[in-house]
Design a protein around this nucleic acid. Structure first.
Length: 465
RNA sequence: GGCCCGUUCGUCUAUCGGUUAGGACACCAGGUUUUCAACCUGGGAAGAGGGGUUCGACUCCCCUACGGGCUGCCA
């Protein structure tokens, strides 16, 4: 079995799409799980719509998602001479021909064909013309596609797909300005790059037939095809801007860990039995083409959030901390100061189990990121009435000389609670308000321990006045 | 219009001719609990429709409906 080579080949017309990200992930998982290579090629032959900014955005997106590629990024445009060379080879082999029809002529033909309900497949009169009759005019090079028989795609996901050759016309391979078309460029590049498995969106399924004809024309081995269904929005329609987040960077900005997105995206359209929550190691081990479904999947943010929470909880503190810093940078938020970073890292143990996203974690970490005086929000303010202020005052005194350990603190608070005839639940509210200025926080004891005795007492006293 | 692909709980999916059609997320009820999160118990929830093939179809075939893709000298 030859080594596996996959590739991701986006066209640089914008940011990295969530669907593209999944395609890249599948290619990456397949290559990495089989000891193969994962290559990256930018399909920038359309100069009008390509931009270096878009290429950069795509690269950044892949890096954020944690998908590393092998070798240099290939620019399809840079290979245009090679593409033209192959077009001429096909010409020499008699598998292609020069066509002198103008675009206007073809356009007119298609229009009338459509109007009359006839097939719009264009059959060039130059297909079998004697080169001696060739005019001195611009021409394109068309593939001399077989007219009889059928072209068969053996797709690892879709199964056997058969196209009748009389349904496929002689596609243009080299334009009249000598630049290659996408159809030719893909085949030449995939061949030259040694790509063994083409895993891409099923919007390319029909193209696979045309590309197969080019592979045949050059006598090149046809790669294994795997056309995966597209991702749809929550309403089941094709994903578009109106669905909200379609750019990968938007997911980064919403504060989902890349590991969670990898897990979620992998499960969208692919499955390994009942496994839902897994890490990269497992994904690489389990991923295979046979596990890919044929129906389009919808984005489900609830499930993403659930997985996100599980991944945050499972992260090592150091990993989590640096992911948080990446998140902060991505959202243009101020970076953590060294002391904040320290405190945060000490508190992660009581934060990561209760947060589904980074902003949620940061909100719960607020108690240690703000300085006195702690200003309570409206909800927290409500729990600071006269009675509770009195309780806080008592608690402050009670904790004055307490040893700063969990058991002591729990005991002291329980004692105060008992003394007032209230449950712990009732006095936890005011303590939260005093220490964090919020109603949603980690355990009050965890906050006290993280904050330390002096700061805790100061905050309790502030709130009791 | 032509060609191609798809269709199991609300959502992601398991099932590869024989299951009370399983799991997860979400939802509802209850429990635990210092809030949130997490956790525990229970619950409702699915094979698009119609024909075949077969002793037996979610599973194989055909038709219809619905969704999607392609039909460019775009990628």
């Amino acid at each position: 079995m030859p080594p596996i080579v996959t590739r991701f080949a986006p066209s640089p017309t914008g940011y990295l799409h969530i669907g593209g990200a999944r395609t890249a992930l599948f290619n990456w998982l397949y290559a990495r799980g089989h000891g193969g290579q994962f290559l990256l090629r930018i399909e920038d032959t359309d100069r009008e719509r390509s931009s270096p900014e878009a290429t950069d955005a795509i690269l950044q997106g892949l890096k954020w998602l944690g998908l590393d590629w092998d070798g240099d990024v290939v620019s399809q445009f840079d290979r245009r001479h090679r593409h033209a060379e192959v077009a001429h080879q096909m010409l020499a082999r008699g598998n292609a021909y020069k066509c002198f029809c103008t675009q206007a002529e073809i356009e007119a033909f298609r229009e009338s064909a459509r109007a009359e309900g006839r097939s719009t497949l264009f059959q060039s009169p130059w297909r079998d013309a004697d080169p001696a009759t060739h005019p001195d005019l611009p021409y394109v090079i068309r593939l001399k596609a077989p007219r009889l028989g059928e072209t068969v795609i053996e797709d690892a996901v879709q199964g056997r797909v058969v196209f009748r050759n009389d349904q496929l016309d002689d596609m243009v391979c080299l334009r009249s300005d000598a630049t290659p078309t996408y159809m030719l460029a893909v085949v030449v590049d995939d061949h030259d790059m040694g790509v063994t498995h083409v895993i891409r969106g099923d919007d390319h399924l029909n193209n696979a037939a045309r590309q197969t004809q080019i592979f045949h024309a050059m006598d090149w081995p046809v790669p294994v095809w795997a056309h995966i269904p597209l991702i749809h929005g929550e309403d089941g329609k094709k994903l578009s801007k109106r669905h909200g987040a379609v750019g990968l960077h938007e997911y980064a900005a919403m504060g989902y860990p890349a590991a969670a997105l990898r897990n979620y995206l992998a499960r969208l359209g692919w499955s390994h039995g009942d496994d839902e929550f897994f890490n990269d190691e497992q994904a690489r081990q389990w991923f295979d083409l046979a596990g890919i479904g044929r129906a389009p999947a919808r984005l489900d943010f609830k499930k993403l959030a659930n997985l996100s929470g599980l991944h945050i909880a499972a992260m090592e503190d150091a990993t989590l901390l640096s992911a948080l810093e990446v998140y902060l940078a991505a959202t243009d938020a101020p970076a953590l100061t060294a002391p904040d970073r320290d405190r945060l890292s000490q508190a992660l143990y009581c934060l990561k189990d209760r947060s589904k996203t980074f902003p949620e974690l940061l909100e719960k970490a607020r108690f240690l990121l703000v300085a006195r005086p702690v200003v309570p929000d409206a909800a927290a303010e409500k729990s600071l009435d006269t009675v509770s202020r009195g309780i806080l005052k008592k608690l402050t005194m009670r904790l004055q000389n307490a040893s700063w350990e969990r058991e002591t603190l729990e005991g002291a608070v329980a004692e105060i609670a008992a003394g007032t005839g209230l449950g712990l639940g009732k006095i936890a509210g005011p303590i939260r308000a005093a220490l964090a200025g919020r109603t949603v926080t980690p355990s009050v004891f965890d906050m006290m321990l993280v904050l330390g005795q002096a700061e805790t007492l100061a905050r309790l006293e502030d709130a009791s006045l």
